[in-house]
Each structure stands twice: as C-alpha cells, then as structure tokens.
C-alpha cells in the first residue's frame, strides 16, 4: 500500500514537472506559432547551471540556485528570440523558424557537451534528498512533496498571470488572432520576447527539479523535448490545466511501467501517447 502510494506520488511529481515543460512549449506555440525545437536544451541548460553553481559554491541555498538558473535561462530564451527566432518569423513560412530553432538546439546541446562534458550529472540537495514526512500510516520522501508543491504553485501562478494580467490578456489575444492583435496597438515583438523568456524560465525550473530527482546529461534535452510535445498535444494548446493533467498521465505511466518492467525507459509513455494520438486523429478530434 505504502509502496504503491509512494509510486503514485513519484509519478504525479514527475508528471507535474512534465506539465511545467509542456506549458512553456504550449505558450510559445500558441503565441508565436513556432514549434520551438530548442525547448529541450533550455531544460538541460537550466539543470547544468544549477549543477555548476552548486559545485562552485556549495554554500548557496538550493532556492537561490533555482532562481538563478531560471533567471539566466529566461534571459537566454529572450535573447535567442530577439536574435534569431523573431527574424526567422519574418519569412512568413512557419518551416523557417522551426528549422532555425532546430539549428539552435544542436548548437546549444554541443556547446553544453563542450563546456560541461557528456556525463550524467545529478544535483545534490543535501539533507532534503533523505528527509521524509509522515502522513498518517504512510512515510513519504520530502523531495517529491516539495517538488510537487513547487509545480502546483507554478501552475497556479501561470494560470493567474494568463487570466488576470494585461500581459496575459495580450498573450490570449495574440494566440487568438495575431493580425488583429497587432491592429489593437499591442507591441507584438515585445510580447513574443516575454513569452520566450517565460517559457525558457519554466523549462529551467523543471530542469533543475528533474536534476534533483535523477541525473541529467546534455543529451537528455531531446527526450524532454519529446515529452513536452506529448504534453502539448495531449493537453491542448493554451490550456494550463490540460498540460498539468497530460503531464501527470505521462509521469504516472513512466513510473508505473518502470516498476513492472525495469528497462522499459520511455517506451510505454510513448506508446500511451501514440495510441491516444492515433485514436483522436481517427475520430477527427485533432486540430
């Protein structure tokens, strides 16, 4: 009973992080209409910034490391948007920005390999990794609870920003009708940069938390990108709640399948996704 509960908690926690990754990607896709293939690299770069900072200055508190990684990645995401993606978007052909982000992904991935090496790295969070909580008869690890808490808070915050702020209003208007939004005097390019930075920050946040849970290598970005895609496709564009639910479905699938088939990797996650995708496509419920 405790084991199953622990497993489910692990799955939901992992799923929450998947949801965060997917929400960032959905935001860029919804507002920029760009399939951002470098999203996975921002996740690993976030994780590696945290690993690097902790190695250089072990006394810095975990929370500060997390904030720093998010801020740096957000800046990087905004910079990439201004320098490359926004320019590529001028060509009107959606293939061009998508291919540009693919080029950026390859560059970032290999820059990471060149600077940090190709090894798997984990993030040491000291006592937090061993700490546990007692919930009635069940004892559970503190780290998954904290991680899940952060994911939930981030989701609630994101939904509130989209729902209630001027920025959120502009984001929704842009993803509804980009040309009419421009007509309304919205500074479109500026919103694009903000969205790219926000998505990159979310990616980094998830990356750091994933590195606390298990190791990350510079090549992990590709599989995270694929998971982010799966979350976006399952959860629907522009739906933060959908992203969370889709993330949880995939996370629980991964943890449960790893439990009964230890070397399955992401096989069952992909199978679940592919089946749902095909079912939906066959029944015509796919945009």
């Amino acid at each position: 009973m405790t084991a199953l509960f622990e497993l489910l908690l692990q799955g939901v926690t992992l799923g929450g992080l998947y949801g965060v990754i997917g929400a960032g990607l959905a935001l860029t896709f919804g507002v920029l209409r760009v399939v951002n293939l470098s999203h996975g690299e921002l996740i690993t770069i976030g994780a590696f910034i945290a690993v690097g900072v902790t190695a250089l200055a072990p006394t810095v508190p975990v929370l500060a490391v997390l904030v720093l990684a998010c801020a740096l990645c957000a800046a990087l995401g905004g910079l990439l948007q201004v320098a490359f993606v926004e320019r590529a978007m001028h060509f009107r052909d959606p293939m061009v920005p998508m291919l540009v982000t693919f080029g950026i992904a390859v560059i970032l991935r290999n820059l990471l390999v060149e600077t940090a090496g190709a090894d798997l790295r984990g993030l040491n969070v000291g006592g937090l990794a061993q700490a546990s909580l007692q919930l009635g008869p069940v004892i559970i690890g503190a780290l998954p609870v904290v991680t899940l808490g952060i994911a939930v808070v981030v989701f609630a915050g994101l939904a509130a920003v989209i729902r209630h702020t001027r920025f959120g209003r502009e984001v929704r208007a842009l993803s509804d009708r980009p040309d009419i939004a421009a007509l309304m005097g919205i500074r479109v390019a500026r919103v694009h940069v903000k969205v790219a930075a926000l998505a990159a920050g979310l990616a980094a946040l998830a990356g750091v938390l994933l590195a606390m849970r298990a190791s990350v290598s510079p090549y992990s970005g590709v599989s995270y990108l694929l998971i982010a895609f799966e979350v976006v496709v399952l959860g629907g564009l522009g739906s933060t709640r959908g992203a969370f639910a889709a993330g949880v479905l995939l996370g629980v699938t991964q943890v449960l399948s790893a439990w009964w088939d230890s070397n399955a990797g992401l096989l069952y996650v992909h199978l679940v996704f592919f089946s749902i995708l095909v079912l939906r496509a066959m029944t015509g419920r796919l945009s």
Binding site: A88, I104, V106, L111
Partner: peptide
Amino acid sequence: YSGGTYWIVIGALAVVVLLVAP
C-alpha cells in the same frame, strides 16, 4: 577539432543560411 565543435559549426551554418537565404 572535436565532434561537438563540428556540430556547433554545422548548426550555426544552418541558422545563418536560414536567416540570410531561407
């Protein structure tokens, strides 16, 4: 040069080509 550097160069070439001559 290492394989990583090679991929960086190729990626940069692709990005530049796309932005200059899509």
